[in-house]
Write a protein that binds this DNA or RNA. Structure first.
Lengths: 202, 202, 202, 202
DNA sequence: GATGAATGAGAATTCATTCAT
DNA sequence: CATGAATGAATTCTCATTCAT
């Protein structure tokens, strides 16, 4: 009977740690994150973090994993009722805009070379297309397009990776170069998608 | 009379600082860079840096600027004697392979959000195509291709930026995900360029 | 009725704590011992220790006491069927070799200045010979040797302490200087015992 | 001109660090030594230590080296004008009494297993007798005694090590067991030396 | 121009211990 | 009996920076 509120509290503190860490990263980048800052902001002592996490590294991994989940939850998935090309256009427009909104978090996540983070962000490896839901979906859409004669024949795995890398590149630079105007951003997104879709033509 | 050799010496020390910093970054990444390490390796005392640079930040900017110059110098420029599509293929293959070789330095450079660094690495802004020699060249090649009927009509500035972003995205992820096999890397590069070139067709 | 199994359990936990602490000390030295490590290895929470012991210090004293008992149990006692000189030779050879095997534990024990530990490890005080079974035995052997004319007359208590200190010194330094070869170790042990036995001659 | 006082000051601070460290060790043992404590007592900031020493370990080694030097300087060396047995008696009486006076320091030194410290405290290894001046002297005295017919023939190196270990053992236990009365201490020292000298007889 | 002393802030971790539950 | 949350003090060490000399 007494356990539930306790558990809730426990979970709450853990979540609070993650939340504050997330906020710091989002606002000031991953280098600004320190155990001390988190706990000071919480009004707790520094040691408490080691109650809930083994390491700073592990804590960071959790934070980024949560961030990844959030981003993925926000991302409009490929709409399978649309024609493949329209689906791709819609999904990636959403993807870039969404990433742009969660700028710092996305950057911390997608630029991280930590093995733990790469565990769910890496996409280029041979066979990664099967491991990543997003890429799998994209591959499916490509296959559909090919069967419908909308797209020319191609290796769908490699192509999915190429498309993903291209869109990532645009988003990455938009995050790095902060002062691109919204109008220019929209134009770039459109042009990028256009280029890709034309590249897929039979 | 005595000033010139003095100035030369001054310049030499400055260059040495930058060179060592560059080496550290190249070998061990930007986080391994510390004033102490630089000066210790030089056999000087730490304070010396503040005679030549205001800040660590400013020093870093200088280092990266030099790095940028070096990378640009290494990059195979667009070969204007080749047909435009071949020129693009050759240039970007070289670009990615080259960036992959200077991994840490390239990453420090291209992922930096420092205004000073962005001063010569930003590419997405409206009008940036005229400011960046590399993009200018690419734009020229695109124009040539369009005139030759190889490429369909398009906004060459926007297209150059899109192409550049796409290739950057691939390189960026190759740098982040360290364990992509050379074979897979080659395939990805090829597929990416193929996709782009097909996207340019009339 | 329910108390007895409870008490048994209580005792069992206490023993387990001591056993694990002993293992840690034996393997990694006394500095590697921490409450957390003990309880983690037990699958208990850290607080549990304070149900069974007042302090880390007190816990440590208990551990060392047990260790002392074990070492004493292992030590080949003086064989009263042998001639006194042979008995001494055999016992101390065994003593040094045995201490060398349980290196870390022996060191933690014999170098400890904690009053609690000294309660059963001190040997030099006036009258300690009667309080320490090991010294008592040695004294008996000396007396036997004297009566048999094997050893010259002497104060047996003082002599037992001197002999013990001499052998302790050799063992102590063997533990401190880790890289003495087994051959050299054997030679030193022999020489030490030889020196002592000759010193006892009439 | 300005350099000398500077150098003097530099040296002074270094010495002060060592002196305070020495005092802490002497008073409260080697485990009580911390960088913070040293610098706080000096009225300096903690970082200063790393100006003068690379490590805590290195600092400790310096402290102990100094301590070793001091102890050695205090130790009455073997008096070569005395007959060998008298020389040994005098030297070791002085050695034990002296070690007893600098109790904690001696303990920190002689019980340390740090390689750096063992570099000048180890004595048991094969050939160490040639490397340690003190042992060399003792060996010389033994040889003299043998030639004079005072001592029986023996391996002088091994014997020197054995004697040294025996006396070390007595001193070590005197340091560990703090409450041995001066009278008992004197008796023990005498008995120990007696035992050894008798052991050396032909 | 160059040094070396010195700082102060901050980094991650570890630990023994307490206490309400 | 046992837990788990929490603390607070301690640990070594690193770093950018300043400044008198």
């Amino acid at each position: 009977m007494a356990r539930k509120p306790q558990q809730q509290h426990t979970e709450a503190v853990r979540k609070q740690i993650i939340a504050i860490a997330q906020r710091i990263i989002t606002k000031e980048g991953v280098n600004a994150l320190s155990i001390r800052r988190i706990t000071t902001e919480m009004g707790y002592s520094a040691g408490i973090v080691y109650h809930y996490f083994q390491n700073k590294e592990q804590l960071l991994a959790c934070v980024l994993e949560q961030g990844y989940a959030r981003i993925m939850a926000c991302a409009r998935p490929l709409d399978e009722t649309l024609p493949p090309d329209e689906a791709i256009r819609a999904a990636f427009t959403g993807y870039v805009e969404n990433g742009h909104k969660n700028s710092a978090e996305y950057r911390a996540l997608m630029f991280s070379t930590s093995p733990q983070v790469l565990g769910f962000t890496s996409v280029l490896g041979d066979g990664k297309c099967e491991a990543r839901p997003a890429l799998q979906l994209l591959m499916g859409t490509l296959n559909a397009g090919i069967q419908q004669g909308l797209f020319g024949p191609c290796d769908p795995a490699l192509t999915a990776q190429a498309i993903w890398a291209a869109m990532f590149g645009l988003l990455a630079r938009l995050l790095i170069e902060k002062d691109v105007s919204p109008a220019q951003r929209a134009k770039l997104i459109n042009r990028q998608i256009e280029l890709i879709l034309k590249g897929l033509r039979p």
